[in-house]
């Protein structure tokens, strides 16, 4: 089966800045694919390269097997939901949704029908005559979604679409987007800097740093088996143990990741002093200083929490320590 999107050696430089630096990537046809990374890591530029808003400095892009490297945005079978929604302020909601059909040359009645159907799909029936300025943030988000979906794209690109929404609405939309993607069966490429969002929504996740992909894999892969210290730290704020320490512990000379929630207090190979603690509601997080290496430990509610300055011993179940052999970062 052909991949929906595939990159080969794709780069985009802005002057001396390598926003995207020689990236290879394949995105499957029905996948919910997440590009995750801190701001400035190149994930948004990657999305813009797929949409055609940026031209690559080097490398090629294929969309469903066709070389799209030199195709302008209006010739690509992909559509975008923008971070700021980019709704046309001079058009009402229905005309916004029907815009793509209008420039394509569809008849007026047909576009009206399709637009109203698309609005129904995002639960905005009856909002067609309003102006975008009269809608709430969540509603604008849905209009932007309907406007992209009405074009029946083969791939939908979403650029941090939930960033501007409050927490509750965001969680609701996460669920709806996931359902919608399954319903439509098309590929979603979803950009976010929120690792929680990435893990809960993605079929696969690509973690970006400094213009390069650090790791591609299922949410479980990147969370439990990070390949680089950056991934370990960025996804779920894991502890990264230095190669020296790992050598002392298990005799291998490579850094390793250790999840805060996997550490048990009481018995184990490491000893240290508690020097910070924070109550998080459902758990308490303490930080233990083991000869200069600071380890975060998550103690679930009900567990015994040591005091500041206490000496503690740290252990973990077998397999929790993940050695990062392929570490390059």
């Amino acid at each position: 089966m052909t991949a929906a999107i595939s990159f080969k050696g794709l780069s985009r430089h802005f002057g001396d800045v390598r926003a995207v630096d020689s990236v290879d990537l394949e995105i499957g046809a029905g996948e919910f694919f997440v590009l995750l990374g801190p701001s400035g890591s190149g994930k948004t530029t990657c999305l813009r390269l797929i949409a055609g808003f940026e031209r690559p400095t080097a490398g090629r892009i294929w969309i469903f097997g066709e070389d799209a490297t030199a195709a302008p945005p209006y010739r690509r079978p992909v559509n975008t939901v923008f971070q700021d929604y980019a709704l046309f302020p001079h058009l009402n909601v229905r005309d916004n949704v029907a815009y793509g059909l209008m420039v394509r040359g569809d008849a007026k009645a047909a576009r009206r029908k399709s637009a109203d159907e698309a609005l129904a799909l995002v639960a905005l029936d009856g909002f067609g005559d309003r102006k975008p300025s009269e809608l709430s943030g969540g509603q604008r988000q849905r209009v932007a979604l309907a406007r992209a979906l009405v074009m029946q794209p083969k791939v939908l690109l979403l650029d941090e679409p939930l960033g501007a929404l409050d927490l509750k609405l965001r969680e609701q939309m996460q669920g709806e987007l996931k359902t919608l993607q399954r319903q439509l069966g098309i590929a979603f490429v979803f950009v976010t800097h929120d690792q929680g969002e990435a893990l809960s929504m993605g079929d696969r996740v690509a973690v970006f740093d400094k213009g390069r992909i650090q790791q591609v894999g299922s949410p479980e892969d990147v969370y439990d088996r990070p390949e680089t210290p950056f991934v370990a730290d960025f996804v779920g704020a894991s502890n990264v143990l230095s190669a020296d320490m790992v050598h002392d512990l298990v005799g291998r000379n490579a850094p390793a990741s250790l999840r805060p929630e996997a550490i048990r207090i009481g018995f184990g190979p490491l000893a240290g002093v508690v020097h910070a603690r924070a109550f998080l509601g459902s758990a308490t997080r303490i930080e233990v200083d083991c000869d200069g290496q600071k380890l975060k430990v998550l103690i679930p509610k009900g567990g015994e929490v040591p005091q500041m300055g206490d000496s503690v011993t740290l252990g973990w179940s077998e397999g929790a320590l993940h050695i990062m052999d392929s570490a390059n970062g």
């Binding site: 302008p72 209006y74 559509n79 923008f82 709704l87 046309f88 302020p89 420039v103 406007r147």
Partner: peptide
């Protein structure tokens, strides 16, 4: 917003259509 122009082209409009339907009205 610069993304208005990108949105227009993303939805299939050429430069001329974008000029006519998005830039000029705005």
């Amino acid at each position: 917003s610069a993304s208005l122009i990108e949105a227009s082209m993303d939805l299939g409009a050429t430069y001329w259509q974008t000029l006519r339907f998005v830039i000029m009205p705005n």
